[in-house]
Simulated scan of single mutants.
Amino acid sequence: MNKFSHIDLRVNDLSRVLPFYEKLLPALGFTRAFHSADWRVFAGEGELPRTAYFAITEDREHQPNANLIGFWADDREEVDRMAELVREIGGTINDGPRLFPISPTYYAVFFEDPCGNKYEIVHRLN
């Protein structure tokens, strides 16, 4: 069983990054929105609170760091499509998409949102 529950992400400029996440998160399967005054919540299929969700709030003092959030891709083509989407919506590709020497089939793209938070989308067989 996948024990993942949710991500509570801080960004230093919500108005700048929200258009990015409104395109990225649905493409990753977070297709339902539950927004409040302070939080923008994107959830997967299923009932809250049991389904995975990604919540974003603004903290003007937030400083991105070396933390990284990773997502699975079904195949290399999905990694490539997501890399192209990241470019189109204002993200920064830091590396890839390409094979990485983590394992013989580790195909990934590493990128940042417009505020500098770091991500990876990966497909691997072993």
Results as ranks from 00 to 15, higher is better:
M1L: 08
F4G: 10
F4E: 04
H6G: 02
I7E: 10
I7K: 02
I7P: 09
L9Y: 05
L9E: 03
R10E: 14
N12R: 03
D13H: 10
D13T: 02
L14Q: 06
R16M: 01
R16C: 04
V17Y: 12
L18I: 07
L18K: 04
P19C: 11
F20Q: 03
F20K: 08
Y21I: 05
Y21R: 05
E22P: 07
K23T: 13
L25N: 04
P26L: 05
P26F: 00
A27M: 06
F30Y: 08
T31V: 10
A33E: 13
A33K: 15
A33P: 08
F34G: 09
F34H: 09
S36F: 14
S36G: 11
A37S: 13
A37I: 15
A37W: 01
D38N: 12
F42Q: 03
F42E: 06
A43C: 14
G44M: 15
G44L: 14
G46I: 02
L48W: 06
P49M: 11
R50N: 15
R50M: 15
R50S: 15
A52H: 11
Y53H: 11
Y53W: 13
Y53R: 08
Y53M: 13
Y53V: 14
I56R: 00
T57S: 14
T57Q: 14
T57H: 14
T57F: 11
T57E: 13
E58V: 02
D59F: 11
D59G: 03
D59Y: 08
R60N: 11
R60A: 13
R60L: 12
H62Y: 15
Q63P: 09
P64S: 11
N65T: 04
N65R: 05
N65H: 14
N65P: 05
A66H: 07
N67Q: 15
I69R: 06
G70C: 10
F71V: 06
F71R: 05
D74N: 15
D74I: 12
D75V: 06
E78A: 12
E78S: 13
E78R: 11
E78I: 07
V79I: 06
V79M: 08
V79K: 00
D80G: 03
D80S: 04
R81I: 12
M82L: 12
A83V: 01
L85W: 03
L85N: 00
L85F: 03
L85G: 06
V86N: 10
R87N: 11
R87L: 11
E88S: 15
I89M: 05
I89R: 00
G90A: 07
G90Q: 09
G90R: 02
G91L: 01
G91V: 04
G91C: 03
D95A: 12
D95P: 01
L99C: 00
F100I: 02
I102W: 10
I102D: 08
S103H: 13
S103E: 12
S103P: 07
P104S: 05
T105E: 07
Y107C: 08
Y107V: 02
V109D: 01
F110R: 04
F110C: 06
F111C: 03
F111R: 06
F111Y: 07
P114Q: 09
C115H: 00
G116C: 09
E120A: 12
I121V: 13
H123F: 15
H123V: 08
R124Y: 07
L125I: 05
